[in-house]
Nucleic acid binder design. Structure first.
Lengths: 124, 124
DNA sequence: CGGGATCCTTGGTGATACTG
DNA sequence: CAGTATCACCAAGGATCCCG
């Protein structure tokens, strides 16, 4: 193989880098249920600022993952939806999401164990 | 349902937030092939600083995804490996990774299209 | 309503030096 | 080898204001 995914200049790594974006993941997940407008998305993805949401959507649009449609209403209405490509990605992300849901208890238990060891070390 | 994954205080979202970490993803991917030592990992994950690698490993250890073993050699040898939990996560990430590989060409094409439109708009 | 421009703060990042 | 500590730096992110 010419290069592996972990190499800085591997194209797949570039894609992966972008996917490893908390907000992008959350936006894609939100759009799985259907088309949303800018402020709907903003409310759905709790904690995202307007600036970052705007940036994120622009990137995703550029990547062909999200489609942006501006309706000529007054005031303007802008709709965001997943493209076909985006839908396949959303399914993949869904796996990650459900993994997180299934294993979060185990993770929290591990964290508690780790933290107890930490303080125990300090104490004794 | 009590809350959705996109809510700031949803436990699953907390897990997801952490997973949306480029370096964590890359580290987990690297460990899929087997145990690695600190500097091996550092070489494998191209571009990671030692500070960040250290932080990342500590988080992953806390989450019970990675196991850290210090061998009493001189100088000390520290090995990192995936736990059982980590292995299941690695499989999930693999899906994401292979999605990226399969679709990166389409993404790059979309980007080129987008950029052409951009400059076209500017030009005329 | 959607989103650009601006300012300002935080924290990620790299380089360097040091310890066990 | 496997880190920790420190510093200088820059870019990402939040808050705010404003416009079409």
């Amino acid at each position: 193989m010419p290069y592996n995914v972990y190499s800085r200049n591997c194209p797949a790594r570039l894609v992966l880098d972008r996917l490893a974006d908390k907000w992008a993941l959350l936006v894609i997940g939100s759009l799985r249920e259907g088309t949303l407008r800018f402020n709907q998305l903003r409310r759905e993805v709790d904690g995202v600022s307007q600036k970052v949401l705007s940036q994120t959507l622009k990137k995703l649009e550029r990547d062909g993952i999200v489609a942006r449609t501006a309706l000529p209403t007054v005031p303007v209405t802008v709709e965001y939806a997943l493209t076909t490509l985006g839908t396949t990605l959303a399914e993949t992300i869904e796996h990650l999401s459900s993994w997180a849901e299934s294993n979060m208890e185990e993770i929290q238990a591990a964290q508690a164990r780790y933290d107890r060891r930490e303080t125990a070390t300090v104490a004794g």
